[in-house]
């Protein structure tokens, strides 16, 4: 065993960071055994790389129109995946679209997960009227299908990618609040919380340092599994013309634009569709793998 591995797996780490890294490494060793999850992770990493290096990876300018070469099938005239109705290179648009997809996913997760975590843990830990008020609010949001609610928000805020993100985030947090609350309720009576209270810890500290770290695991899993849904909702909004606006290269909007040609030039709509499916599936596989590693009930 090489020394760094020994260092990570030691039973006597010498610092908090080494302990944390060690724990992380053990988790990775377990994660690694799930081949499908690793595949999911690789696809997600690929998405990130593609988004980061889009200008170098793309072969054409995604916005350059060339009406002479519209609706070309894949593999013709240097267009690997063909062109759309304005003669723009589908492959390059797909590559740039990765940026938007990733941005949507990251922003939604970064907005919705903390809101859900805060609302859920506060409701679960404080109980009483705080719980009642917060949970009724959550119920109101949960009562509508998220796409409908997002539609209403976008209709109110006006179409556009930023508003679509805000709308999706606002509709995505209630399930997270539910999860965080359920988790909090199972741990709020535990002895280590009682100990923290005896030591004089304030409620904010208990929530932040004791309860949230235990809820984060199941939230990370859930958010990862929801990524697919988020991508699809964003695509749905794009498809309805309420999300990304032309000429922006967003996968959902690309399908929407291609649907008119779906009978004769099937690839225009199908190729971005495949991209959405692959990325959604990858997030799902990743989430499954994370669940096995992070589930606090195990170990």
């Amino acid at each position: 065993m090489s020394t760094w591995r020994a260092q990570l797996l030691t039973d006597t780490p010498a610092s908090r960071n080494q302990a944390r890294l060690g724990q992380f490494y053990r988790g990775w060793l377990q994660f690694k055994r799930n081949k499908l999850a690793v595949l999911g992770l690789l696809i997600v990493l690929l998405l990130i790389v593609v988004a980061a290096f889009a200008p170098w990876i793309a072969t054409h300018d995604p916005y350059a129109q060339d009406l002479a070469r519209r609706l070309l099938p894949p593999g013709t005239q240097g267009h690997w995946l063909g062109t759309d109705e304005f003669g723009r290179d589908t492959y390059s648009r797909l590559v740039y679209g990765a940026r938007i997809t990733l941005m949507i996913v990251v922003l939604v997760a970064a907005i919705a997960a903390p809101i859900g975590l805060l609302v859920g843990t506060a409701a679960g830990y404080l109980g009483g009227w705080v719980d009642a008020v917060l949970m009724r609010l959550t119920d109101v949001f949960l009562a509508f299908p998220s796409l409908i609610l997002a539609l209403a928000f976008v209709a109110a805020l006006g179409p556009g990618i930023e508003n679509a993100i805000i709308a999706i985030a606002l509709t995505a947090w209630p399930p997270y609040a539910r999860i965080a609350r359920a988790e909090t309720i199972t741990i709020r009576n535990s002895d280590y919380i009682a100990v923290a209270r005896m030591q004089g810890a304030r409620t904010a500290r208990i929530l932040w340092a004791y309860i949230m770290p235990l809820c984060v695991a199941s939230l990370v899993v859930r958010v990862t599994l929801d990524m697919a849904g988020i991508i699809l909702t964003a695509a749905g909004l794009g498809f309805l013309g309420l999300g990304a606006q032309p000429p922006m290269a967003e996968w959902g909007a690309m399908i929407s634009a291609g649907r008119r040609y779906v009978l004769d030039q099937w690839w225009v709509a199908t190729i971005p569709g495949i991209a959405i499916i692959v990325v959604s599936l990858a997030f799902n596989l990743l989430g499954d793998g994370l669940r096995d590693v992070l589930d606090p009930r195990k170990s």
């Binding site: 908090r16 002895d191 280590y192 100990v195 004791y210 770290p213 235990l214 606090p296």
Partner: peptide, 8 residues
Amino acid sequence: ASLHPRHT
């Protein structure tokens, strides 16, 4: 049950 599982 009396030690926090994520605290060293």
